[in-house]
């Protein structure tokens, strides 16, 4: 029998650690992804995600249930990331030590190989390019794109997490995408259709 989030929250508020663990497991990928993309560093992401969940545990007594737990904890993560980035900016100019940029195959590959090896290679190149592009974006743009594109949150959910109205979310996402496009164009390779892709693109369009 499935236990609802609401029930888990009530149990956790009474001190039930197992219930809280279930809540953590249900939202950890989303939280970790945000922390990872915002910080660009695995260790920092792990620390921030950990702190986020600990703060959620400690803050449970005052969690009112006005939003879902998932939204609430995600908001905590989002704020923690922004704070972290501000502090990091003040501390240093350079990159962190475990930068995603440094890794060759940093992340698990998607499991649905679609085409020929060349196409797969190209797909990987594009992924790497958008990853770099994401890291180069200003925080506010990066944040909404991670939420919308990587975690698939709806505009409403994003509005709830960031406590913004829908119109602001729409325009922020549009601006973020525009900014990313510009970065990718500057980088050079992203939008140059390669021979193997040309035929495919024609078909798709």
């Amino acid at each position: 029998m499935a236990v609802t989030e609401r029930e888990l929250v009530l149990q956790a508020q009474k001190g039930d650690q197992e219930a809280f663990e279930q809540l953590v497991l249900a939202s950890q990928d989303r939280v970790y992804t945000l922390c990872l993309r915002m910080t660009g560093d695995r260790e920092d992401a792990l620390d921030l995600a950990q702190e986020t969940f600990l703060n959620a545990w400690r803050g449970l007594p005052s969690f009112q249930g006005n939003s879902s737990f998932a939204t609430w904890v995600y908001r905590l993560a989002s704020n923690a990331c922004i704070d972290f980035l501000r502090r990091r900016k003040r501390r240093q100019q350079g990159e962190s030590s475990h930068s995603l940029d440094d890794e060759e195959t940093p992340l698990p590959e998607p499991v649905d190989p679609r085409g020929t090896p060349e196409e797969e290679l190209e797909r990987r190149e594009l992924r790497r390019a958008v990853e770099r592009g994401l890291q180069a974006l200003p925080e506010r743009h990066r944040q909404v794109l991670v939420m919308r594109e990587l975690s698939g949150l709806s505009y409403q959910e994003i509005a709830a997490v960031l406590e913004l109205d829908l119109g602001t979310v729409k325009s922020r996402i549009a601006r973020a995408r525009l900014a990313l496009k510009k970065i990718l164009i500057q980088e050079g390779n992203f939008f140059a259709p390669s021979p193997s892709k040309k035929a495919e693109e024609t078909k798709r369009r």
Partner: peptide, 29 residues
């Protein structure tokens, strides 16, 4: 360009949290 970007981002998707995340959180708790 937008469609292509969207596709690549979707491809990136979420990154699964490492197991030590929940382990450390629960241990601290």
């Amino acid at each position: 360009a937008l469609v292509r970007m969207e596709e690549a981002l979707g491809d990136l998707g979420e990154t699964p949290a490492p197991p030590e995340l929940s382990a450390r959180v629960m241990a601290r708790i």
